[in-house]
């Protein structure tokens, strides 16, 4: 069991409103990712759920119980921090077992739980080491192990991968996804990296300035963004926003994903000049300057021999384009 519900949750530091009226329901066993730019309040919201930050108004419910004033240790949650936050004076075994020991579990049972978690995470050989004697990836696994051992209703992850290098990040991302499948646990995961969000989430919550912009499955957000912000935030490379009046389209801007533009040497379309080309092997990114749209990114499959200053014609797939009004809100229905 592990349901989370936020009802009109608000948080202000002094006069600054950091979280504004957040309503959200996370179902049992769901992998929910909070994503948004740095400083939008993701960590604050997570700390409120954990009970490390009190809630200014509204309610937090875990399994239907209001936990607004319940101390963190009694909310049956576990949290993994970006900085690992391992106790420097304890070895791996004691780091992982401290929570259970504090909860008054018998020693043998604590040892058993720690052993099982250590095995899951390949940490059995390191149980007597101090955190200082481990690599970054190992420390992160200990931090995850410390969370698993508690058998919480709710796992909270705060940017757990940001301190790892790129290769390790991909590997740990897969491990976390596997862990979620094995444990079937409810997970709330915070990241500013939309790739992490897309690859891990059952459901993504996009936050901006302490407000929820949109909630949905990764493909829902990709195919049906509610506004310009979500459209620009989800998907990599970023969506292009073309000038609507120059295209004779309604609204202020037309959003076209880089993968939905084709290039040709002649014919009708948007005229532009190549300003930069990135060859990635499997795909080629072409950056094209076109008045009055600015720099447009085009993503092509495979290898292409374009070079800087080439004149090209871009043809956006208007059937898959999004239209936004002056406030950045989506215009419906999308005209064909």
């Amino acid at each position: 069991m592990g349901q989370l519900k936020l009802e009109n949750a608000c948080k202000s530091f002094g006069t600054v409103d950091v979280i504004r009226d957040v309503n959200l329901e996370v179902k049992d066993g769901e992998f929910c990712v909070f994503v948004g730019p740095s400083g939008c309040g993701k960590s604050t919201l997570l700390r409120m759920i954990a009970g490390l930050e009190d809630i200014s108004s509204g309610d937090i419910l875990i399994d239907g119980q209001v936990v607004n004033t319940t101390p963190p240790s009694q909310r049956e949650i576990a949290m993994v921090f970006q900085s690992y936050a391992l106790y420097p004076h304890l070895n791996v075994r004691d780091n992982m077992g401290l929570g259970l020991k504090q909860a008054g579990q018998p020693k043998a049972q604590v040892a058993q739980s720690v052993d099982r978690a250590a095995e899951m995470l390949d940490l059995s050989a390191y149980l007597t080491r101090r955190p200082g004697e481990l690599s970054g990836g190992q420390r992160q696994r200990v931090a995850i192990g410390r969370a698993i051992v508690r058998k919480p209703k709710l796992f909270l992850f705060d940017e757990p991968l940001s301190n790892l290098d790129a290769a390790l990040r991909v590997q740990t991302r897969i491990e976390i996804a596997n862990l979620h499948r094995e444990l079937g646990a409810t997970i709330v995961y915070v990241t500013h990296d939309q790739v992490e969000a897309m690859t891990l989430a059952d459901r993504i919550v996009v936050l901006r300035d302490g407000r929820i912009e949109q909630v949905g499955a990764p493909m829902e957000l990709y195919n049906n963004p509610a506004n310009e912000f979500v459209a620009g935030f989800i998907g990599s490379p970023k969506m292009n926003f073309l000038n609507a009046s120059a295209l004779g389209a309604p609204g202020k801007s037309v959003g076209v994903r880089p993968e939905h533009i084709t290039l040709s040497d002649s014919g009708a379309g948007i005229d532009g000049r190549v300003s930069h080309v990135e060859h990635l092997g499997g795909e080629t990114l072409v950056y094209i300057n076109a008045d009055p749209h600015g720099l447009v990114t085009v993503r092509l499959f495979g290898e292409h021999a374009y070079s800087v200053n080439d004149r090209l014609i871009m043809r956006p797939d208007m059937a898959r384009a999004f239209h936004f009004d002056d406030n950045g809100q989506r215009l419906h229905p999308t005209p064909a």
Partner: peptide
């Protein structure tokens, strides 16, 4: 002293 460390301890019930 790292806030995360103190928060981890709070969650562990110290």
């Amino acid at each position: 002293v790292s806030d995360d460390l103190k928060n981890a301890a709070r969650i562990d019930g110290l």
